[in-house]
Design a protein around this nucleic acid. Structure first.
Lengths: 334, 334
DNA sequence: CTGTTAGCGCTTTCAC
DNA sequence: GTGAAAGCGCTAACAG
């Protein structure tokens, strides 16, 4: 026998109806103990696995959420994917993880895939090159929560960290450590958190004599390295570097190190994310970040709330915006 | 309107049958151009997204594969997940990524989930604490490919790297660099690649005066650190460390560094994976590894071959075992 | 060129 | 306690 066994097969073998077989497998009290046992034994003997597609078709819910995020080569997203999948599973949900590579087109396609598969809701780490995906999700009336980034003009359920505060903390820290001229390697300004971090950086510099420059670069492999090299040609006066995220901080460390600079003696380095909470890396960067497990919990709790709200047939309620605090994590680089 | 539009809705609006609507959306030449246009416009106006559950029920294939792997906190798996999802998508497949956290129980559940969702096939990075999952997959006659690890007693389609060779290369390299007493921090011996790497390590030591010790530890957060600290108490004579994988190498670097040791001056460090091919880390470890993109391509090509083979109704063919070579990547730690 | 019918595997009335 | 029938949304076989 090469085909997956179905309820029908079980029913035939047990000389009962498909309905009874279904109920027996659920241990329904309306079925005689004898039949229940018979059905369950047959099922396990055949290696029966319920076809969840059929169940979903019938019941209208898949018990699946989608998580759409950027790129697993960045441990920031990889770690989130892990925590999301883990926590969602604890709540009885399967997670469909899709990556976008920071491409708006792929993001849109990811949403289409998720919608086509009838996920009950989704967590979106938005690319923010455009807002098509969010508009799509709104139009399709599917519960979703934005994570990490948000759109100022669109009202959405969102879970963020206080990026402005994180950048402020890290900048203040560098100033305390004696920085006089800081280079901030930021990510693209279309990203909300990039603008927020820029604000925090500038607020920390106010009323001080410390100088700060901001460059826009990206998380792509090698970009931080190339940008940094360009800025550290002879004659520069930078004594501190801030990077948008730890992944860029890694590249910066690697680059400075190879240029023969000692960190933190010759130059200070700090970044944002605080990944050392989740993974031990060769060098611990000084970084600002938040607890990603907690952030995940908030995001999924909110999403599941929206889902059950919708399944109960209620009207859409007012959007929630949760902002988690950032804190400073002292590493070896300052 | 709050419900997802279906073909029925479109058919009603277009005054045609559901079948015609279906065909029109597929641009079937058997439908008049006029109707095709009408249907397509209506579909896009309504924001119609085909229900892939229904399609799958009908056609019997989901165009989805599952990838079951360990833990995204290890960039090794995160990077694989990325490449798998990317390449699978290029081939028209969605990937259901599930993590096991090195738990046999979760692995089994992951397989059940994937089977219940009727994936067309799966890539399994086996935990190897037991073989229940593999037996389940065999019993369910679903196409699958093991990646990275394999069972010696069970005949399966597998894509591996030459772990024995990698460990050999890295050990020889350390010897050339002057190592006299090497500590190999290996992972659990129930893992195939752990045993293979051990073999390579020992082969490299043969006919030499270099001493080598092997310790079993794990990839879990902090374990390598704790083990290493225990072994580097005063009086030890180790002048080189090898770790089972880069993630453990990171911990080792971090630990040695904090103990005040200079690498490679005071002690040599090398590991396996070669993650610097995919991600720039603060420090580049000397490592042996393979091209993960290529490995992914091999694994998915093989899986898709098995899938189409099965869909064509053919009998199971002989298993293939693909072993990719490992090469040495010189870093800063030797 | 178009429509009718049947059915994928399951759950959910409703009836006995 | 148990079963028959309907239907979730779609496609494929067949008919016209």
């Amino acid at each position: 026998m090469n085909k997956k066994p179905t309820l029908k097969d079980i029913a035939q073998l047990c000389h009962c109806s498909i309905t009874s077989a279904s109920r027996a497998l659920k241990n329904s009290p309306t079925i005689s103990l004898e039949l229940r046992k018979r059905v369950q034994e047959t099922a396990s003997r055949l290696g029966y696995i319920p076809n969840s597609l059929a169940t979903s078709m019938r019941t209208g819910s898949t018990n699946t959420i989608a998580a759409i995020l950027q790129d697993f080569r960045n441990p920031f997203f990889a770690v989130f994917a892990k925590y999301i999948e883990e926590y969602a599973r604890d709540q009885g949900y399967t997670t469909l993880i899709i990556t976008t590579n920071e491409s708006a087109k792929k993001e849109y396609e990811a949403c289409m895939t998720a919608l086509g598969k009838n996920v009950d809701g989704l967590l979106l780490f938005p690319v923010q090159k455009d807002d098509k995906s969010v508009l799509l999700l709104n139009e399709q009336h599917i519960p979703y929560v934005l994570v990490g980034r948000c759109f100022q003009e669109i009202d959405t359920n969102t879970v963020l960290t206080d990026d402005e505060q994180g950048a402020y903390l890290i900048t203040k820290h560098l100033i305390e450590k004696g920085a006089t001229h800081i280079l901030f390697l930021n990510s693209y300004r279309y990203i909300y958190s990039s603008r927020a971090r820029e604000k925090g950086f500038q607020r920390a510099l106010e009323h001080s004599t410390v100088m700060g420059d901001i460059v826009e670069t990206s998380m792509d492999f090698g970009n931080t390295r190339n940008t940094l090299k360009g800025y550290l040609k002879d004659g520069h006066t930078y004594d501190a570097i801030i990077t948008f995220c730890d992944l860029m901080g890694f590249e910066a460390y690697n680059t400075l190190h190879k240029m023969g600079l000692s960190i933190p003696e010759d130059i200070l380095l700090a970044s944002m994310d605080g990944l050392q909470q989740d993974i031990i890396f060769p060098v611990e960067l000084t970084s600002a970040g938040t607890d990603r497990k907690e952030m995940t919990r908030h995001a999924i709790d909110l999403l599941l709330e929206l889902i059950s709200h919708k399944q109960a047939g209620k009207e859409k309620q007012e959007s929630k915006k949760i902002i988690l605090p950032q804190f400073l994590i002292q590493g070896e680089t300052t």
